[in-house]
Design a protein around this nucleic acid. Structure first.
Lengths: 176, 176
DNA sequence: CACAATTAAATTGTGTGCAATTTAATTTGA
DNA sequence: TCAAATTAAATTGCACACAATTTAATTGTG
């Protein structure tokens, strides 16, 4: 069903192997020149990008019941274990910056699931606290991971491998 | 460096195994209750989401030289092999809808790399054609995949496995 | 102590993604 | 044939991501 060739070519950033590429597309009308590195079906990055979008779409109906978006759900997950965390630490855990988090947290505040308080000692810091409502939301959220596993329809072993691969790639990409 | 447990729990959408979860966080202050499915470090979906964001960030400096964003680059890749494709087919290949593509294509048109023409037979259809400039951009783009592989710093074999896993997950998630 | 450097958030601006709706053209079927 | 159904894009509205800049508070240093 899917092709197996990646994005790019042999490692080492120099040697490029222009043989050994082939096989034909899953998709409609593509007539890809054999050997091209610019074939969309070959690109790991595209697969990963599309799958991430598909994940967010898959979560949407489940999270709608909690009135949360996927990034909001991620923030809530962190808060359920780290109530009172500040924006910098939250951003380090979620790999998001204040430009993303500040408005997102304001939206969650307007939904009354959290409050954004100034740090006692340091006025620059924002500490994020769950409200009673925010704490209670965890009960409804508990069922979400199982439902998601169900949608994934893959053995746990395979999902674990996939996660490992993503984590390894992530670490390499952010190691400036 | 990274934990290995997923998001959710044993398959079949019913049986939930509440033992067998453990190990402690990579990150700062998290005190995760053992057994919780809502631990961020355990979630495949979060890894995939973060990695997709990291990929887009990694492409940015390379694509800046071409004056393209990552989604724009994807559109160009499809066009280099499918000049004259319409928006519907383009959307099927890239898994994006007209709400995303229409404004994106307008931006690319304003950069003079493509034109958006009405279909001859069917006035509803938009056919997208590369300009001379858009065709020529391919030369500069050819080096991008190799550079990206370089940033990934993983053996090709592992990247291929990762792609396979993403493709399998993707197919399952979109199978309504 | 003063003031430059640093730090934490917030702000600004651009470009996605996508649900939902609308517009306009084409096709279907009574 | 001609109105209803379908289809392809476009539009609208909202919520991210994130680079770049700004604001305000704190820290470090002479």
């Amino acid at each position: 069903m899917s092709n197996d060739k990646v994005d790019l070519k042999m490692s080492q950033c120099e040697e490029v192997d222009h043989a050994s590429v082939e096989s034909c597309s899953t998709h409609s009308c593509s007539i890809v020149e054999p050997g091209s590195n610019l074939a969309i079906e070959k690109q790991l990055c595209f697969s990963l990008y599309s799958t991430a979008n598909a994940i967010v779409r898959a979560y949407r109906p489940m999270l709608k019941a909690l009135d949360l978006t996927y990034p909001q759900y991620l923030v809530m997950i962190v808060l359920w274990s780290n109530n009172g965390i500040n924006i910098k630490d939250l951003g380090q855990i979620l790999h998001l910056d204040s430009g993303t988090l500040t408005p997102l947290l304001k939206r969650l505040e307007s939904k009354h699931v959290l409050t954004r308080q100034r740090g006692e000692n340091d006025e620059r810091v924002r500490e994020i606290f769950l409200t009673e409502q925010g704490i209670n939301l965890k009960n409804q959220a508990e069922t979400v991971p199982e439902k998601m596993l169900c949608k994934a329809k893959l053995p746990l072993e395979e999902l674990l491998e996939l996660k490992k691969g993503c984590d390894r790639l992530f670490e390499n990409l952010i190691a400036e």
